Amino acid sequence: MIASLGSGGAERVMLSLCTAWAARGDTVTLFTFDDGRQDFHAVPDGVTRVALDIAGVSSSPIGAIRANAARLRTLRRALRSVVLDVIVSFTDRTNVSTLLAARGLGVPVVISERIDPRRHDIGTAWSALRRLTYRGATALVVQTERVRSWAETHVSASRVHVIGNPLREVAAPPVTAGNRAATIAAVGRLVPQKGFDNLLRAFALVHRSHPAWRLVISGEGPLRASLEAQVRELGLDAVVSLPGRTSAVDEVLAGSAVFVLSSRYEGFPNVLLEAMACGCACVATDCDSGPSDLLEHDDVGLLVPVDDAVALAGAMTRVLDDPALRSRLGDSARVSTQRFAPARMLQAWDNVFVASRRRAA
């Protein structure tokens, strides 16, 4: 169960899991709340997709109540229309709706938070509903140990499981450090969470001593106009590009010497894991959750404080000035990603299912 098949990390992980489950012979039905017309990802072979077309925004509180009641009825009918051994739901609001719709069906419901819920504001009403409904979850999966303590305030500790994201197969061929372009890559939605405004301020400092290096920020979102204006104000038009959303992320990462994650908060940053797998020298902000679970500072990558443009510029300058360091970090990062091999992550999910069925029996 997921809201849509958009370009986000939660959608990618859900599809990766569905692909693996279907490949081994499981019957997989993937419900989405949207109508399926704006899919970024393709539905895997062997997976039945049901687009419920229940997403929407209401214009008034009363309208919202009526619309949500209708959505829950539709969702409950959909769940009752198929034979289910377990329900898996991703992301906060979807989790709440799924738990409400599945009440009394006798099917284990495994929910998962896909971002740091301590930082991601879903509003007062949804937060209250989350606290109320999560008690009914058979299991709650979070992505990092740092979020475990939050999860244990919503369900009992025995029902909390920490599972990182599976590393998907990188499509781009490996490129040696010496053959990579003098490019710093960043990837993500153009939203405040990703901290690209701070990245631009940091790159402006780096550019003074490294004019040959370019910054490419791939992604789309509501901050495009303000980020483009910031590029102009900083005089970086010739060395910064924002090409938009791309399906060729692997090629972008494999051809870039450095990857920077400038986020203010994360859950488990897929793109950082993918950059590591591509052998990029990685610099990341030390968010409350995510980067430090992937990078060991000075060994696998460099970590800097959140929203500190000077520190970020210093770390970027350090890797730009030292080709040997870039090579060492890239090699270490590539090896480190094997902790998140798909088979290991799939087994972790299977362990959750076994425990959930035992608990529900």
Rank of each mutant, 00 (worst) to 15 (best):
L75D: 06
P61K: 06
L79A: 02
R24D: 12
T29S: 04
A128L: 15
R66Y: 06
A51K: 03
S97L: 14
F31P: 05
R114A: 07
T32W: 12
T91D: 09
T138H: 07
A67V: 04
H154L: 15
R76P: 05
G136E: 08
R73L: 12
V43S: 00
R118Q: 13
H154E: 10
L105F: 03
I111H: 03
R114Q: 15
D45H: 10
D26Q: 12
L105Q: 04
I87T: 06
G36M: 09
H161M: 05
T91L: 15
V107M: 01
R130P: 01
R73F: 04
D116E: 13
S60C: 07
L79P: 09
D39A: 11
V88Q: 11
A151P: 05
V109E: 08
R103A: 14
G106V: 11
A139I: 03
W150I: 08
P61F: 07
L52W: 10
I65Q: 10
H120A: 09
V50R: 15
T27M: 02
D45F: 06
L52F: 11
L30S: 10
E152K: 06
S149I: 08
V110H: 10
T138K: 08
S81I: 03
V96W: 00
S58A: 15
G104M: 10
W150Q: 06
H154N: 12
T91F: 10
V109L: 03
D53H: 14
R66W: 12
A139S: 14
V28S: 08
G36D: 11
N95C: 09
V86C: 12
A51P: 01
L99P: 10
R71Q: 13
T32V: 14
H120T: 00
D39L: 00
I122T: 12
